Simulated scan of single mutants.
Amino acid sequence: MKKLTAAILCIIMVLTLAACGGESGDALKGTWSGTHSDYGTVTWKFDGKGKCEMENDFFQGEGTYTIDGEQVTIKLELWDNEVVYDFSISGKSLNLTATDQLAADYENLTKK
């Protein structure tokens, strides 16, 4: 009986850890919003599966993203080229800094 109980507990622990790993695999997953000096209210949505949306006072678009370490590559449908951002998250605050110096940076976006 003890072996059966131990085996069941091990299975529960493995399943619990696997579930936790799925949630934390995409640090950007969720909705992030803030104010940009040129674009007004900006909202980024990352679905955790490679699809994203961005909306500001002048633009709304859908696209895709991939994460590699602390960089995210985003390609919105209406953009000519993909943009690579360095990203950092501190608590519920996200910063996206474009690596090409041409695209807009987004600072202090708050997770909703």
Rank of each mutant, 00 (worst) to 15 (best):
M1A: 14
M1K: 07
K3T: 07
K3N: 14
T5R: 15
A6E: 11
L9G: 02
C10P: 07
I11P: 03
I12G: 02
I12S: 13
M13K: 05
L17V: 12
A18R: 08
A19G: 09
C20F: 14
G22E: 06
G22D: 09
G22H: 07
E23K: 12
D26T: 06
A27P: 15
L28N: 09
K29P: 02
T31F: 00
W32G: 07
G34D: 06
G34S: 04
G40F: 06
V42Y: 00
T43N: 08
W44D: 07
W44F: 13
D47Q: 05
G48K: 00
G48D: 03
K49P: 08
K49N: 13
K51H: 11
E53F: 11
E55W: 05
E55F: 01
E55R: 09
D57F: 04
F58C: 04
F58E: 10
F59A: 04
Q60H: 13
G63K: 01
Y65M: 01
T66W: 02
T66E: 12
I67M: 08
I67L: 07
D68A: 14
D68N: 12
D68I: 06
Q71D: 12
T73Y: 07
K75A: 04
E77G: 00
L78E: 10
W79Q: 00
D80H: 08
N81L: 02
N81I: 00
V83M: 00
V83I: 08
V84Q: 09
D86L: 10
F87A: 11
S88F: 05
S90Q: 13
S90A: 11
G91K: 14
K92G: 10
S93A: 12
L94H: 09
L94K: 04
A98Q: 05
A98I: 07
D100L: 03
Q101P: 01
Q101I: 03
L102V: 06
L102W: 06
A103P: 06
N108E: 13
N108P: 05
K112F: 05
K112A: 12
